[in-house]
Design a protein around this nucleic acid. Sequence first.
DNA 1: GATTGTATTCTTGTATACAATTATATCTCT
DNA 2: AGAGATATAATTGTATACAAGAATACAATC
Lengths: 217, 217
Amino acid sequence: MEKVSSSIRITGQPLSESIFIELRSAILRGKLRPGEKLSEQQVCDKFGLSRTPVREAFRQLELEGLIETIPNRGAFVVGLSKRDIEDLYEMRKAYEILAVKWAIERITKEEMEKLEEAYEFMEFYTMKKEADKMLNINMQFHNLIYKASHNRMLEHTLSTYQFYLKETESNSAYLDGYLEEVLKEHKQIYDAFVEKDTEKGMAAAAMHLDNAKARAK
Amino acid sequence: MEKVSSSIRITGQPLSESIFIELRSAILRGKLRPGEKLSEQQVCDKFGLSRTPVREAFRQLELEGLIETIPNRGAFVVGLSKRDIEDLYEMRKAYEILAVKWAIERITKEEMEKLEEAYEFMEFYTMKKEADKMLNINMQFHNLIYKASHNRMLEHTLSTYQFYLKETESNSAYLDGYLEEVLKEHKQIYDAFVEKDTEKGMAAAAMHLDNAKARAK
DNA sequence: GATTGTATTCTTGTATACAATTATATCTCT
DNA sequence: AGAGATATAATTGTATACAAGAATACAATC
């Protein structure tokens, strides 16, 4: 493992959090290979800090299943296979459908206003053909739905999946040729919120995620 | 928080793991109330050990969303609302359907033999009307399916949900009057494995979990 | 040459010590 | 008495120290 010159200290945020995010990203991006041993001391040396926060990060990675620790032997990178990622799209789809359903039932007025605003930005960026901004607002749109589902676990899990898929996607600018198609799919979801039609929303979400999976190829 | 007389040390297992499981259980069972402050020192005193393993357990609880930590202020119990638990049944159902689908597609010969054995135990215990043993083999049956899905994340999540629901269920002996009904539902799932019929399996799983939710009331 | 037993080294698991931030209590002033 | 400021105490965040287990190296034996 190569050293990094700069510290990862961010004021206010515990170091264990930073290390967790950093290592998770490295594993998902394949910089840390499955099977590879992850030594606490090496990680400490790399980031220039003590073992305490590193160990806390390890325990979190273990809980997410990205590393496997054998007592008194150490931690080993697990990582995601091609099929794991394929599966992840399916798992996300199943939850996203639930999120849309609950969000339509439970969304507050304020949340609805934010969702409307997000959708309007999507229209705007589609018109301007700004794919990278579209990618961002796309994520926000979905995150607003997660929040509006008013279920912390679902929200957390879907945010995690979003992160996983973002990190593992080979080409993050894959939206380029599909802006209008993507907009249309989101319009169907958004319309379902306006009409408070859960069935329509769930169907639209399912369709959208099937297409998203196909586009990511 | 009251002290416990006995130590929770189990040879081979890190203490952080034991504390994690212990605290998680306490939160799910409502012994630790939502909003309550969870002091590191208090937990240390209670279990008679140092802060290092306690902190590691806290980080894991945080990741599962059962506590919320505010930097430099401490950890606060979050817990699950009635609706959270209701939702959990839906979330479990969505994943269980996926697990059955993938398991039917991916199950190995050895795994199939174990599943068959588990199902036969279910028949046996139903005949003998042993509800508590049935509860156990029931969990095993489902865990075998999780394993056979050959997706670690799905397996881990479903195991967690199983634990959550088991801990929060008001009456763990709720199977009592429903042994034959439950057996029938599992037979349908098991038959789908024998016939390698994913559609049938998914439908049977959906039905089973709807009924399980209704029975838990 | 292969294998087993032992000593050494290395790594992890836990406890303690220190630093930094936050909460609380006390005191002052109006 | 109440509001604000300061000092003290308590709690968290991080680093270091120690203990226990595992891996490695090496010697002795077959």
